[in-house]
Amino acid sequence: MHLMGFISAVAAVVLLAVLGQAAVVTENGLPIQWDKAPNELSQLPTVDGVIQVNPWDYLQRMALSKLLINSTDPYMSSMGPGEKESPLWSLPLQLGWKLRSGMIYYLCDVTIRNNPGSSSTCGLESSEPVCTSPQSWYACMNYYMSVLPLLAAVQTAVVGKGEIQLHIQAPAEVAQDYCSTSDCSTKYPDAMTKWETFFQSLQQISNSDDTDFNKDKILGLLWAAEEASLQTASLACSERSIYTKLYSSPEVRFGQGWLNSAAYVAVAHFHTNIEKYMAPLPSRVLQESDRPPNIPDLSAEENHALHIFGWMNRVNQLLGVSLVTLWRRAMCSPQAREKGQGLLHDLILDPKFPGTSLMAILTEMTTSC
């Protein structure tokens, strides 16, 4: 019973992550403050011919994703028609959610509340500039999902055509805790290599006429890079405040569940775009008194998502990685991955789906690989 409950939880998390529409992450159909973010490298500050990027300025961090999307769109035709099909849209949408919910500047907010005389406006969405906190676990995690891809795109000449010099500014108070420019490749070679492989492969893959192959291959390389970034971030950000008393235990549990769900989404090569991204995840940082699925000021959808993450964490502790391993083995081909997505869809959305047969289906899929 625990196993079936856990499989249902995983499926719900995946569907919440990729099939729902999140009102909190977009404005006029685009990531929050997208129009204000610089469109080109030339719009960023330059010193002695070197472009200076301050990823602790929200708009500059958003610009990193904008540069990636604009530069790779010519290679994304296999994703579907239109300008909103790129799977890279997941990066700025994730950042927008963290801005609106307060997660990327939570520690700034704590500092202000603990110092009533402070004149800082750090973390206010209406401030200029909107800053993120280097002490925030969420801002730290997002750093490695924003900076590493941009550096790899520059190194592979996808962004800047090999004609630019770039410097990533580290936060002065904790500069030693973040990689900056060239030392990202030295400190985190696995993640950087996977991002470079993704960008290097895009043009070659897009030249093939096999649209289905192109799409699955591109998504596989992208998810490999994203997983590597998340693993890198998980280690690099382990000292950030998600593990301290400044975050509530419900928020810590949610953060862990949010991170753990990536493996299930990634291995199925889900196509996340601007229309199919995430259900309303919590619109604020959780407090100690919050008890999902009964948090009065959050929507039913937010409460459900939090409840699922909590359930997943509990059963994860019972089962370890055995289900992840089985799931990975079952998702062994484009056809299997497509079947797996349908399986998740049926499990959650069709009340008549025979959930007791799920393990048999996964086992059959595994043995047929």
Rank of each mutant, 00 (worst) to 15 (best):
G102Y: 10
Y105D: 12
Y106Q: 08
Y106L: 04
C108V: 02
V110D: 01
R113K: 13
N115E: 03
N115T: 14
P116R: 03
S118P: 02
S118V: 07
S119N: 12
S119H: 09
S120P: 09
T121Y: 01
T121G: 01
C122K: 02
G123Q: 06
L124H: 11
E125G: 01
E128H: 09
E128C: 03
P129K: 05
V130P: 00
V130N: 03
C131Q: 07
C131N: 02
T132Q: 11
Q135D: 11
Q135E: 10
S136W: 13
A139M: 12
A139R: 14
C140D: 06
M141Y: 13
N142D: 14
N142T: 11
Y143V: 09
Y143W: 13
Y144W: 02
V147W: 01
L148D: 00
L150Y: 13
A152E: 01
V154G: 09
V154P: 08
T156S: 03
T156K: 08
V158Y: 03
V158P: 04
V159H: 12
K161M: 03
I164L: 08
Q165Y: 09
L166E: 05
L166D: 07
I168G: 00
I168S: 00
I168W: 00
Q169G: 08
Q169E: 11
Q169A: 14
A170V: 07
A172P: 01
E173S: 15
A175L: 01
C179N: 04
T181P: 09
S182K: 12
D183T: 15
S185R: 04
S185H: 07
T186D: 07
Y188C: 01
D190K: 04
K194P: 02
K194W: 05
K194S: 06
T197H: 08
Q200H: 15
S201Y: 10
S201F: 12
L202C: 09
L202W: 10
Q203S: 15
Q204I: 14
Q204E: 12
I205S: 03
S206R: 12
S206A: 15
N207G: 08
S208V: 09
T211N: 11
T211M: 10
D212C: 01
F213H: 12
F213A: 11
N214S: 14
N214M: 10
K215S: 09
K215G: 07
K217D: 04
I218H: 00
L221A: 14
L222V: 05
L222F: 14
W223A: 09
W223L: 05
A224I: 08
A224E: 14
A225P: 05
E226Y: 15
A228I: 06
Q231P: 05
Q231D: 12
T232A: 00
A233P: 05
S234W: 04
S234P: 02
S234M: 02
L235G: 06
L235A: 04
C237F: 10
C237T: 10
C237Y: 10
E239R: 14
E239M: 04
